[in-house]
């Protein structure tokens, strides 16, 4: 999952990046509205954490411009201005959630998880696919109740596939959503990780759809 953090305070920005990276997200960051707008406009993020008080362009305007350009990724507004008029203005501008500063990191992470799930069409905190079960709260994947040992890259890949299970996910989409913008996209790491995952879960769950990408589905599900 790829997250964009737009926050001008360098300390808070660093904390957010650390916490999100630790939670298994690929994180890009911007320190002002202009840069933030550009990144959100050009990169496919799964969720955006957007500060309202930003230099150059304020957060609400950035959000409005994204929505006007049909960028529909979930956006969580982060601001010290916690009056209801500010909340309503933020939500009306197209935000999906609202976190008031100062906040507990756990709360923000929970909100981010909820937005990621919601945008992938899952209502519950746990996502199941056959015998696989992803608990988004604890960032754990179990097979028949037994935890699977995964590296962080493997977790990201499998979690993304589980969020979008039953759908064909292209290699490009995976690269775009699993790695931050500095990642070397020409490498064949995706294939390597798919290969590793097939050894850890029933190998026929991840199918290669030739020329299109990969699909995670229940055992024996042919469609």
């Amino acid at each position: 999952m790829r997250v964009l953090v737009v926050e001008d305070d360098p300390d808070l920005s660093r904390q957010l990046i650390t916490a999100l990276t630790d939670a298994g997200y690929a994180v890009d960051s911007a320190a002002d509205g202009e840069e933030g707008y550009f990144l959100g406009e050009t990169e496919p993020y799964d969720v955006v954490v957007l500060d309202v008080g930003l230099p150059k362009i304020d957060g609400i305007s950035v959000l409005e411009q994204w929505r006007r350009a049909n960028r529909n990724m979930p956006v969580i507004i982060l601001t010290a201005r916690d009056r209801w008029s500010d909340k309503v203005a933020g939500m009306d501008a197209g935000a999906d959630d609202y976190v008031a500063k100062p906040f507990h990191m756990e709360e923000l992470l929970a909100r981010i998880r909820a937005q990621v799930r919601r945008s992938a069409g899952h209502a519950r905190a746990e996502i199941e696919c056959g015998d696989l079960r992803l608990d988004t709260k604890t960032a754990r994947i179990t097979l028949n109740g037994q935890p699977i040992r995964l590296t962080s890259h493997e977790y990201r890949l499998l979690a993304y596939l589980m969020h979008h299970n039953g759908r064909v996910v292209s290699r490009t989409e995976l690269v775009e959503h699993l790695y931050d913008q500095d990642f070397d996209r020409d490498s064949n790491t995706i294939e390597v990780f798919i290969g590793r995952l097939r050894k850890k879960i029933p190998s026929d769950m991840i199918k290669t759809v030739r020329g299109l990408g990969y699909r995670l589905s229940k055992d024996g599900d042919e469609t």
Partner: peptide, 21 residues
């Protein structure tokens, strides 16, 4: 008042998060 809120809350957020780490 709003400006003061903004000015105080961001550093507070940093302190709280840092301390909890």
């Amino acid at each position: 008042v709003g400006n003061l809120a903004h000015a105080l809350k961001t550093p507070l957020a940093v302190i709280i998060n840092e301390a909890r780490e």
